[in-house]
Design a protein around this nucleic acid. Structure first.
Lengths: 140, 140
DNA sequence: GTCGCTGCAAAGGTTTTGCAAGTGG
DNA sequence: CCACTTGCAAAACCTTTGCAGCGAC
């Protein structure tokens, strides 16, 4: 996701409007590395804007995804959002669904897929975080 | 996912039973590189076993995931299943959700995350397939 | 014969949609 | 002012769950 002034300009250029709700959502997303769910963003925004609706949050997030400013992915049936759209690596805990950015050990060249236009990439590692190793060992 | 005879042995070793429904699901999954949804597997199995239920398909798939023989991931709120559990790369079309395995251009070393136990990994590329480039260009 | 599995139906949770009222540019 | 956006509520969807009957071993 780019900076908020740039984002505002981009929204305007597309004929969109920057409402207080949208601005609050942009600010909530900015530099949020926790891969929040729509619900999490909704709760955070409600602290300062109690009348906002979850539907509005979804609509705004989906718009950002559509214009390539936000990445959306699902973990166990729940959507998460990531303002980082550059290549990076993540680890997902199979036990508790926590998602963390990790320092990617290697740059990854884009594959050549004829006719396919690549706009982003992530490297995803699946495993068990320290907490969940105690509870649920992966079975053999 | 390992071969069906090996899978049967593993299920038995865990005290499980290999019913005709399960066997049909194992066979449907074997070497399926299309990253099918539960629904897709259900439809395929119904052709030869019309009385099977979607709940049974889910239960069986979830069991395979739990014992590490199947990978499960969600795209736009729908679960997909992949019998390939080795590290590999995939491309996901942001327009139509089609998922394809791609030949990974480089082996990727696992990152060092203290206390985190890595059990699998994929490299995911996001983009637009030839069909969807005509419909929805990623906006700039 | 036992214990696990199946199939049905209903529940549970997330995300989307329709629409009247509100408001940014 | 016009078009876009909001908020509400309902709908749509996928997935899980409870349970009685069935069947693998």
């Amino acid at each position: 996701m780019r900076t908020i002034p740039e984002l505002i300009e981009k929204i305007h250029a597309r004929g969109g409007k920057v409402t207080p709700q949208r601005l609050a959502i942009y600010q909530a997303l900015e530099a949020d590395t926790t891969h929040p769910t729509a619900e999490a963003i909704y709760e955070r925004i409600r602290e300062t804007m109690p009348t906002v609706s979850l539907a509005t949050v979804y609509k705004t997030l989906n718009e950002l995804v559509a214009i390539g400013e936000l990445r959306r992915f699902d973990i166990h049936g729940v959507s998460h959002f990531d303002p980082r759209t550059d290549p990076h690596a993540e680890v997902v805990c199979l036990g508790c669904d926590v998602i963390m950015d990790v320092f990617s050990p290697a740059a990854v060249p884009a594959p050549s897929i004829p006719g396919f236009q690549i706009v982003g990439q992530t490297q995803t590692f699946y495993g068990y975080c320290p907490n969940c190793q105690n509870v649920q060992q992966p079975l053999d």
